[in-house]
């Protein structure tokens, strides 16, 4: 059964690669425009062995980690304040409502002048990218905690601080992790864009240099690495969330929407 489910997942990828390879081998398009899968894999090997890929990947990874950790931490802290204290929520809600809809890359020209073109620029962009979604997911998680459970904690002798740390925050974890998971992937997209525009190192910079040299094979290698990194980050947070909420059942299960189950229940 497990083998079957793995095959179901892998088979479309194998079919896609075969079709890609076949089309490239037909030479309908010049190879420097549309390289074959095998050519891309060979280039991947060369980039990996020479250390070019790892150097650029580490540059991007550092920026993503720094921006993401700072942005998420700030989002969680401010979210806790806004979710648990109504006056904080009322004070900050208008300003954040105005800032949230601005696309992250919209900040880039402004930050280029304010911060300069240096390591801090992508970190600041990823900070903004991570901050708002984590903030709003934290607020939603905190406000969504069952009021009866909070009352129960109060009757059991818990102070406001204890209720926050022992009941509200643990129960808000599924929501907080939803924000972290979604933004973990988004942070990689933003860092690539920032590196393409302004920073001379990193996966994005490697891509833009390859474009000027018409090295589509290198670009595709970079895209593959980017895809794997996004997926790895998302899966990491999914794994941590599952480890933490293992056994709780109802909270994460109720919050997750299952199309198949919904269709079955409607029938």
């Amino acid at each position: 059964m497990k083998i079957k489910s793995v095959l179901v997942g892998i088979l479309p990828v194998i079919v896609f690669v075969i079709i890609w390879e076949c089309i490239a081998q037909l030479n309908l398009v010049p190879k420097y425009i549309f390289p074959s899968f095998s050519a891309v894999m060979i280039e991947f090997y060369h980039l990996a062995v020479s250390g070019v890929l790892l150097d650029n990947l580490l540059s991007s990874l550092f920026r993503v980690l720094a921006g993401f950790l700072l942005g998420s931490a700030a989002g969680i802290v401010v979210g806790i304040g806004m979710g648990s204290k109504e006056f904080v929520n009322k004070s900050f809600h208008p300003i954040f409502s105005l800032l949230y809809p601005i696309p992250v890359l919209g900040w880039a020209p402004l930050l280029m002048v304010w911060i300069g073109i240096n390591e801090l620029l992508p970190v600041a962009l990823i900070f903004l990218c991570s901050f708002f979604p984590v903030l709003y997911n934290t607020i939603t998680g905190i406000k969504g905690v069952d009021r009866e459970v909070i009352k129960a904690a109060r009757t059991l002798g818990a102070s406001d601080t204890k209720i926050l740390t022992t009941v509200v925050l643990p129960l808000a974890i599924p929501n907080i992790f939803t924000g972290l998971r979604l933004e973990a992937g988004m942070a990689w997209r933003v860092v690539i864009a920032a590196e393409m525009v302004a920073i001379p190192t990193g996966i994005g910079a490697l891509m833009i240099r390859s474009e000027s040299l018409l090295r589509m094979d290198v670009i595709i290698v970079c895209l593959m690495v980017l895809s794997v990194m996004c997926l790895t980050f998302e899966r990491f947070f999914q794994f941590v969330e599952r480890r933490i909420t293992k056994g709780w059942g109802s909270i994460s299960a109720q919050n997750s929407w299952n199309f198949e189950q919904t269709m079955k229940s409607e029938k």
Partner: peptide, 16 residues
Amino acid sequence: NERQIGYLFQNLALFP
């Protein structure tokens, strides 16, 4: 939290 009351809620409100 200082009234020393044991309260069994209608929906029980166990910590999930």
